[in-house]
Amino acid sequence: MNRTRFGRLLLVGGTGLLILLLALPCILSVVVLFQEGVMRFDYLMTSELGFVALCTALLLLCGTLLARTPYLLLVISFPFLLVSLFSLALLSDPPPVLAAVLLIVYNLSLVTLLVHGILSLR
């Protein structure tokens, strides 16, 4: 298996995990709706699964470097992902506005990583 194929395999795995990570709150809210009859959407689930997001970002990074695809979106979104995730994890009782802004930045960086993964697979 050469470098390009292995890089593409890492890109497919990282993109698939990222799609699952972003779709999981919606899927579980539909499951809870059918089971209990109450709509509950856990908007914090993506940040609670931050370890999966970091593993996904590392898979995308390694896949991008091995497949030699353009990496501008990855370079832009990776630091935002790290800073916002660690800020959310380490701040104890942050102001609600700061927590909301960090959560929005974190989720936007996940979406940017997803766009990078999809564009790299073309």
Rank of each mutant, 00 (worst) to 15 (best):
P79M: 15
L74D: 05
S92C: 04
L65H: 01
L65I: 00
G63M: 05
L54C: 09
L98S: 12
T64C: 10
L91K: 09
D93W: 02
L73K: 08
L85T: 07
P79R: 05
L61S: 11
S77K: 01
P94D: 03
P96N: 08
D93L: 07
P96V: 05
V83S: 11
L59C: 12
P94I: 09
L73D: 15
F86K: 10
L74H: 02
L74Y: 04
L65G: 00
L65A: 00
F80K: 08
A57R: 00
L60G: 13
L85K: 08
S84N: 14
L81M: 06
C62I: 04
L73G: 09
L91C: 07
V75A: 14
C62N: 06
A99V: 09
A67G: 11
L65Y: 02
P95I: 01
V97K: 10
V75G: 09
P79D: 15
I76N: 02
P94C: 05
V75F: 10
V83N: 03
L60W: 09
L88V: 00
S84K: 11
L65V: 00
P95L: 07
S84W: 06
C55R: 02
L59F: 08
A89N: 10
Y71P: 02
F80Q: 10
V97G: 03
G63P: 04
S92K: 11
F86C: 14
L85I: 11
G63A: 05
S87E: 12
F78V: 06
L90D: 13
L58F: 07
